[in-house]
Amino acid sequence: MRVKFCGTASLADMRCAVDAGCDAVGFIMGVTHKSSDFVTAAEAARMIRHLPPFIEPVAVTHLQETDDLIRLVRDSRCTTLQVQNTVEPAELDAVRDALPYVTIVKAVHVTDASAVGTAKHYEPYADALLLDTRTRERLGGTGIPHDWNISAKIVAGSAIPVILAGGLTPENVREAIRKVRPYGVDVHTGVKKDGVRNPERTLAFAREARDALSGEPDR
């Protein structure tokens, strides 16, 4: 089970994720909605210089315009782009043409059953989907789980990897994985304590996620 820790705002955050054995770290940049732990592209680039091999740096953004997305990836030196906001498929194609080395993850907000159709709409244009929760103010980082039954339906019908996010914690990630069967999981607020990323909760999350399907083949 792949594990991504999002909202990396400091070298201490990054070390915490690395020590837990993460597969990816997310840097929130280019925000247009309420968010926490966001950084500039330059700050992300400085942290990425200290990232060990084989851990993916992910640019997580609310930006929508092609030129803005391309500039953000180039300036931050990330190799994966996670698009949280609504964009046209043609925008994702344009990003791919400009940055053929970049993996594109498109967030789908699971507010109701219409998310199944939204996921299918973006599937041909993304390398992976990320199922998240949103509110009027926030495009992610809500700390609120969504309907895992809908997420499980999306995973079962998807031709590309699907990552589960939204309100995951060390206490519920095992149940979520068993219910949804995602390719990977993504957490931000669920591993915080007193407003900062907590080493014990971060390690516990990774352990629970990796053990959730113990004895079953990795997807």
Rank of each mutant, 00 (worst) to 15 (best):
P57N: 14
T135C: 11
S151W: 00
L69Q: 05
V3L: 07
I104A: 05
V185Q: 02
V83Y: 00
A176C: 12
R178V: 05
L203P: 00
D37N: 13
R219F: 12
R207P: 00
K192D: 15
V108S: 04
R210M: 12
T202N: 02
R2Y: 14
L11S: 13
E208G: 01
T61M: 08
L131I: 11
C22V: 15
S158R: 12
V95N: 03
T135I: 07
K34Y: 09
L131P: 07
A119R: 01
A176P: 07
I160S: 08
Q84G: 08
I160R: 10
K179T: 15
D75K: 14
A90N: 10
A128S: 13
C78M: 08
W148C: 06
L69N: 04
M1R: 01
L99V: 08
H146K: 01
K192W: 12
T111R: 09
M1N: 02
L81G: 00
A107H: 03
D68I: 04
T86M: 09
D186H: 08
A128M: 11
L92V: 09
F38W: 11
F54G: 03
V60T: 03
S76G: 13
V105S: 06
D112H: 02
R181C: 12
F54H: 15
T40L: 06
G166C: 08
C6A: 12
A113M: 10
V110S: 03
P124E: 15
T8W: 01
M14Y: 04
R201P: 07
